[in-house]
């Protein structure tokens, strides 16, 4: 007996097959590409690394601000509007700054030292302790940063930070970078170029700029990896933490101060 089903229309069958084929051809690359692009971000941040910086102040040059400018470009700080503040002096004290150059003189010897100051990415960050909502947090890889969706703008973290590392966004923002969005009324600070971490890159904007400027005063790396260059240098160069007395175990270390 022949099994013929007159209801089945071969043309329709072909059409459905073609549609599925075209559909799969359209969607599949998207899915695959998306997975490829998301690969570094798809993995949870691991506590197996601890990111940090070593700053060799003997190589930090007076008058150079390459790191500050590079940080501004990378994180959109150079896009901050002047606001409508009355005086430019007040605006200077109100605009966000993630890294700053500081020039010090020893009271006893008169020795002068230049260094960049930024968030010190403490192991026990006071800003995280005091944040009422948990917006100020430390990632498993040691980066201390602010969740801008949870920050209510109470500024308690700024009161608690021993390094004056945090900035409050005092006005409306426009023309932002998607990699570093910021909003009026929230607090922010250096996040060790976290967008680069999530893309698997191996340095920060300030480190790159310092290398380009020919100084190589800042080294970025994994403080936990005994083989990493930063660990090797920490072993060789006498270095210390700023405000060591607070025992915060900072992720940013300074040599030559």
């Amino acid at each position: 007996m022949k099994d013929e089903n007159p209801v089945i229309d071969p043309e329709r069958r072909a059409f459905v097959g073609l549609a599925v084929g075209i559909g799969a051809a359209l969607v599949a690359p998207g899915v695959i590409l998306h997975q490829v692009a998301a690969a570094p971000r798809a993995e949870p941040v691991s506590g197996a690394v601890r990111w940090g910086l070593l700053i060799d102040t003997t190589k930090c040059v007076d008058g150079c601000s390459a790191c500050v400018e590079a940080c501004g470009r990378e994180n959109g700080l150079d896009l901050q509007g002047r606001g409508e503040t009355g005086s430019s002096d007040k605006w200077e004290r109100q605009k966000a700054a993630w890294v700053r150059k500081v020039k010090l003189q020893d009271n006893q010897t008169g020795r002068i030292v230049n260094l960049p100051m930024m968030c010190q990415h403490c192991e026990h960050p006071p800003c995280v302790d005091v944040c009422p909502t948990g917006a100020s947090f430390k990632r498993a890889d040691g980066i201390v940063m602010v969740d801008r969706h949870l920050c209510i703008g109470c500024r308690y973290c700024m009161m608690a930070c021993p390094y004056k590392a945090r900035s409050f966004i005092h006005g409306e923002q426009s023309g932002q970078l998607t990699r570093a969005p910021r909003g009026k009324g929230c607090v922010e600070s250096c996040d060790l170029c976290v967008q680069r971490r999530d893309q698997g890159e191996d340095s920060t904007a300030c480190v790159d700029a310092c290398v380009t400027a020919g100084h190589e005063a800042i080294v970025f790396g994994d403080l936990q990896d005994p083989a990493s260059p930063i660990r090797q240098m920490l072993k060789e160069l006498p270095n210390r933490q700023i405000r060591e007395d607070l025992a915060l175990n900072t992720g940013v270390r300074y040599a030559g101060v």
Binding site: V128, D129, V130, C131, P132, T133, G134, A135, L150, C151, I152, G153, C154, R155, Y156, F168, I169, K184, G185, C186, V187
Partner: peptide, 20 residues
């Protein structure tokens, strides 16, 4: 507050190591 409209966040998210 910088973000007074987020008061609800302060009510729903508590970090108990914060005196605030």
């Amino acid at each position: 507050l910088g973000r007074p409209e987020r008061l609800i966040v302060a009510i729903t998210h508590h970090n108990f190591s914060s005196i605030f």
